[in-house]
Each structure stands twice: as C-alpha cells, then as structure tokens.
Computed example of a mutant assay.
Amino acid sequence: MKLNRDRQREILNELAAHYPSSVPGSMLGVSNEDIANIAYLTEHGLVQAEFRRNGMGMVLSSFVGITAAGMDFLADDGGLTAIRGVVTIKFHEEALKAIIESKISGSELPEEEKSSLMRSVRELPGETIKQLTARLVDLGLDNMPRAIQAIQSLIS
C-alpha cells in the first residue's frame, strides 16, 4: 500500500471537523488505501482507531477520532505540543564562570593578564555573571558568520 500525504491531511481535517467526537469509519468512506493511511496516522499517535482482519484484509472495527497530537499537527503554530516542547536551558553560575575562565585561559593574552581576569571572573556575583553571559551571547550572535561556522563544525 502506498501512503498518501494529501489523503492523510484530508483524513485529519475530516476528523478535526468532528473533534472531540469520533466518527464511524464508514462515515469517512474509507478505501483500502485509506486503511493504510489511517493505520499510519494511528501509529504516529495522530488518530485513534482500531482494526480487525476479515477475509479481504484489514478493516476499521471502531470509531475513528483525531487526537490532541493530531489537532496540534494541523495547527499552524504547532498547538500546545509546540508550547510544551520549549526547551529551557539553565546554567549554574559556577558552570558559566568555568566556561568563561576556560576561554580566557585559551586566549592569547599575556599570562598575568589572564590570571587577573580569571580571578576577577571568579569573584563576580551571580547577577553580574548573568548580565555578562547575556552580553557574550549577543556578541556571539553579532558575529554570525563565525557562529554559523561553529554550528556547522559541531553538526558535522
């Protein structure tokens, strides 16, 4: 059976029109190709459906309904799935200091200047480290060509 993205979208849209209710499979006018597409959507959690075998192959044995994940899939903004999927990154103050110190240590500054600068960084209060980190991120993004090179080298 060939999967058909356009038909999958049509099925999802048909089911979305009835959300949160489910509809009898017969109401969708399902063909053998539709069974494969509905099974595929079910396996991905976008649709709820049950199947049974008969002499001709697989048939829907129950109502078919779109899931919340299916509704989010259709939403232009990704729905609650996108909102809930936001990743928050938190760095402990000491970890940020260590990262900054390592960059200072690897710089081409004279040794006594490195030592003095690293000592100053170790003594910075948390709020200042937060402001410094935000500024360093801004500087990195302002230097986008080098940032893109870094991203590409990390990915490859």
Rank of each mutant, 00 (worst) to 15 (best):
A16C: 14
E43S: 09
T67H: 01
R7T: 07
L74W: 01
V47I: 05
L60I: 12
S22G: 12
A82T: 08
I11A: 08
F51H: 10
V86C: 05
L15S: 11
P24G: 10
M71F: 01
M71A: 04
T81P: 08
E10G: 13
L12V: 01
I11W: 05
V64L: 04
V64Y: 04
E50L: 06
A16W: 11
T67G: 08
F73S: 13
F63M: 08
P24F: 04
L12A: 06
V86I: 06
L28P: 03
P24Q: 09
E43T: 13
A75W: 08
N54G: 12
A49S: 04
R9H: 09
M56V: 14
M58E: 02
S22Y: 11
G65C: 05
A39R: 14
G79W: 12
A69Q: 12
N13Q: 11
V87R: 13
L80I: 08
V47A: 03
G85D: 11
I11T: 05
N32W: 02
I35G: 01
H44K: 13
N54F: 05
T67P: 01
Q8M: 10
G85S: 09
D72T: 14
T81A: 11
Q48H: 06
G29L: 07
I35L: 08
V47L: 07
A82R: 15
F63P: 05
N13S: 08
N37F: 00
S21Y: 05
A36V: 01
V59K: 06
G29T: 05
A16F: 12
A39D: 15
S22C: 06
V86W: 02
G29S: 08
A75H: 10
Y19P: 02
D76G: 14
D72Q: 12
A82E: 15
Q8F: 02
P20E: 00
V86S: 07
R7E: 04
R9A: 02
L80D: 12
G79Y: 12
G70C: 01
Y40W: 00
N32P: 15
R52N: 03
I11M: 04
G57C: 00
V47Q: 05
N37C: 00
V30Y: 07
